[in-house]
Amino acid sequence: MSMSSRRIRAIVRKELREYRRTPSIVVTMAIIPLIFLVQPLVVVLGLTASSAGPLAHEHVLLYLLGIPALVPVLIAAYAVAGERQQGTLEPLLTTPIRREELLLGKALASLLPSAAVAYAVYAVFIACVELFADPAVASALLQWPQILAQVLFTPLIATWSIWAGMGISAKFTDVRVSQQLGLLAGLPTVALTSLIAFDVIHPTPGRALALVAALLLLDGLGWRIVSAVFDRERLITGTR
């Protein structure tokens, strides 16, 4: 049986409406990106032309990939546990929706705003650097390969974080517990992107491609694993 795009769209639309009206989610989407944005911006704007040289070996821009690693994991951690806590999961699961459809809808609904926020932050960062930083610093910082990597890796990293958060969400009843565990699950990705950003792991085109392949694999696997973990009976009765 094929998947119904109408059902997936119904879930996405419903989730986005809920997110917009849930203060804790709006705050999550605003605070984390700000934290990631402000610190590098303050540092970069304070730099003089003389520090442009060593800067060329760092990839500060990639540090911002922490945003797609952390924002969606927190939203996704809410996805199943939140429905359960509100008591809306039972009516939802009595409809003909398949779990793959439900999970894909929820994943897309977490991905869209997270990616939008991440791209918006990159744009603000780049604009600020272009406008206010020393021109030498700006040209050392903003390199096309990095910007390309940024654009490409954002949805891949976000999707991986979403499956991690959703898997945790399907296992733990409590929204807070599942968000905290979700944060933990997002940290390794942040660590990896930071190591690359500060050139501890030197980014090469080969490594980038390997990472793309690994993330694609993880993203596909994540959907399968979360679908397998998703057990109607356990979610409704809290047993099994």
């Binding site: 059902r7 639309r13 419903k14």
Partner: peptide, 24 residues
């Protein structure tokens, strides 16, 4: 079900719209 389980942040029509789509 025993308890209504509505999406409380959504309007009545939005709740029903979601389920009408889920049943296609």
């Amino acid at each position: 079900p025993e308890s209504p389980g509505l999406y409380l942040r959504l309007s009545v029509a939005e709740n029903l719209e979601c389920f009408a789509d889920l049943y296609r």
